[in-house]
Design a protein around this nucleic acid. Structure first.
Lengths: 152, 152
DNA sequence: AGCGATTTAATCGCTCACGATCTATTTGTT
DNA sequence: AACAAATAGATCGTGAGCGATTAAATCGCT
């Protein structure tokens, strides 16, 4: 199980790729930690905020569609964001099954803090080659979406 | 926060890549679930077994080095693998600070089951282009290792 | 040999991912 | 109008991941 080893079978290749993506996802989480500590959010909370900064007043499941998560994960997380004062949770008056998540003034303001706290790991890892970042992102997403459509 | 959108700043690019890796790691975990259910392990437990199949009788921290995890995560996980009968945990007689993790007969036998339960998602996602898988793995690992060396 | 520093695991508390289940609301059918 | 089916969230239990702390063994220095 050395990174440099050449896998002999598809099973091993699967193992290696799983391992690579797993450990890299963890490493990126850690790389973002200094920034997240500055703004006082966890990684997942931050991703929810990114989704809301892009489009406010979403339903829980709309956020879930973006992040590939469901209410069992999101509900407690959103309650924590509410407790922190960054979002409001309120039942949709037209359809009370839905809960609308909207940014508070503080929640909107946090975006500026996040910009200021700017993580630098992308530069460290890519030496400024933003095209390479973009390409990697596209490839990774391509895998995810092929898994998504083919699952079941 | 649409995947196809073109990010305008480094912060946004960071957000997109984090998001891509995060959601893809989750998707791969889900893609492996059918195989993991067959052999009765979680994803992390499986990765630990992969490490042990490659080299038996490791210390906790040696496993941690491979998986980028520490004893706070591994100790409970290894206790669960022990309870399942796949590994033994015993203090190293020469240095009692260390705990040696060794495979049981059942633990070794599980490898055959894992081979038989073979996940098919790699084929689905790559259409048999194993060279592409290898290349992606290498790129992903390159990021991780640059983060690892540059952190702090 | 003695004692402080280091190393290795274990423990605790919190957050998150997720399967399974439950409740409340809405929709569709008759 | 009444009632079954579908939908949106919430809840619960388990297994991670991780920061902080603790306990025990070993190492290093005098």
């Amino acid at each position: 199980m050395t990174d440099a080893a050449t896998p002999k079978s598809k099973l091993e290749l699967n193992d290696f790729l799983c391992f690579a993506l797993h450990s890299t996802a963890l490493a990126i989480g850690r790389a973002n930690k200094p920034m997240l500590d500055k703004i006082g959010l966890t990684y997942s909370q931050y991703l929810v905020m990114v989704v809301l900064w892009a489009e406010d007043n979403r339903t829980v499941s709309s956020i879930g569609d973006k992040l590939f998560l469901e209410s069992n994960t999101l509900t407690p997380l959103l309650k924590r964001l509410e407790a922190l004062g960054y979002v409001r949770r309120s039942r949709d008056t037209a359809d009370e099954r839905q809960v609308r998540i909207s940014l508070t003034e503080q929640g909107r303001a946090l975006r500026e803090k996040a910009c200021a706290a700017h993580p630098d790991w992308i530069d460290r890892a890519f030496g400024g080659d933003m095209a390479a970042v973009q390409e990697l992102k596209d490839r990774v997403i391509a895998i995810r979406d092929r898994l998504k459509t083919a699952e079941g």
